[in-house]
C-alpha cells in the first residue's frame, strides 16, 4: 500500500513536471509569431499589391499587433501566400514608428563614421527605395515625390535629406509618410549617405 502511494506520488510529480515544462516552452514559443519576413520584398508588395484594390494604408495607422490580424485578413482577401503575408507584415511593423511632420534636422556629423557601407548607393536604391520611388525616380505610388524635378526634394541639403531618410518624413498635406530608412532597419548611416549621393548623381 505504501509502495503504491509512493509510486502514485512519483507518477503525479513526473506528470506535473512534464506539464510545467510544456507550459513554459509554450510560453516561450508564443512570443514569436509569425516568423519575420523580408521587409524589402514586403515593401515592393505593399507598393504594388495593396493599391490594386484600395489606397495603401499608412504603416503608422496601426500598432504591430494590429498589423498581424490585418495582414492575415488581407492574406485571405488578396490571395497572398504565407511568405508574402510575412514579408508585408514585417515591412509594416518596421515602418510604423511615428513620423514628425516637422523635419528632424540632423545635427551630428554627416561624414562617414565608424560604420562602413556594405552596399553601393545604387544597390540600396534598388533594394529599398525603388518600390515606392520607381526606377526612374518619378515615384511609383501616389504621394511619392518626383526626384527629377530640379526644384524638388533632392535640391535640399545632404543633412536634411539624411535626417528625413533616417527618421522618416511626412510632407505637410501628404496622405502618406515615408517610413524611417524606407522600412529597412538593416540600413546603417553609411548606406543612407551612399544612397543620397547616388540619387543626387542619378536624378
Amino acid at each position: 500500500m505504501k509502495k503504491n502511494t509512493r509510486n502514485t506520488i512519483r507518477f503525479l510529480f513526473t506528470v506535473n513536471a512534464i506539464l510545467l515544462g510544456l507550459s513554459m516552452s509554450a510560453t516561450v514559443s508564443a512570443t514569436h509569431f509569425p516568423e519575420p519576413g523580408d521587409p524589402i520584398a514586403g515593401a515592393k508588395l505593399w507598393a504594388t499589391t495593396c493599391s490594386r484594390c484600395h489606397n495603401a494604408r499608412d504603416p503608422a495607422d496601426l500598432r504591430d499587433d494590429q498589423w498581424i490580424s490585418t495582414a492575415f485578413h488581407m492574406r485571405v482577401r488578396a490571395g497572398l501566400t504565407g511568405q508574402q503575408t510575412r514579408d508585408v507584415l514585417t515591412f509594416m511593423q518596421n515602418s510604423n514608428v511615428p513620423i514628425s511632420v516637422e523635419p528632424l534636422v540632423f545635427k551630428g556629423n554627416t561624414q562617414p563614421g565608424s560604420e562602413a557601407s556594405n552596399l553601393s548607393g545604387s544597390e540600396v536604391y534598388a533594394q529599398t527605395c525603388i518600390a515606392c520611388h520607381g526606377s526612374n525616380g518619378k515615384g511609383s505610388v501616389p504621394g511619392a515625390p518626383n526626384f527629377t524635378d530640379p526644384q524638388g526634394v533632392l535640391s535640399q541639403s545632404d543633412e536634411l535629406l539624411f535626417s528625413r531618410v533616417k527618421n522618416g518624413f511626412k510632407s505637410p498635406g501628404s496622405a502618406m509618410a515615408m517610413p524611417p530608412k524606407g522600412g529597412n532597419n538593416k540600413l546603417n548611416d553609411a548606406d543612407i549617405r551612399a544612397v543620397i549621393e547616388y540619387m543626387k548623381k542619378s536624378y
Binding site: 508564443a30 509569431f33 509569425p34 498581424i68 490580424s69 492575415f72 485578413h73 485571405v76 504565407g82
Partner: peptide
C-alpha cells in the same frame, strides 16, 4: 464592424 479573433498564425475568425 469587422471582428478578428486570431489564434497565432493558424486560425482566424472573421
Amino acid at each position: 464592424p469587422i471582428f478578428h479573433y486570431q489564434y497565432r498564425d493558424i486560425v482566424m475568425l472573421e
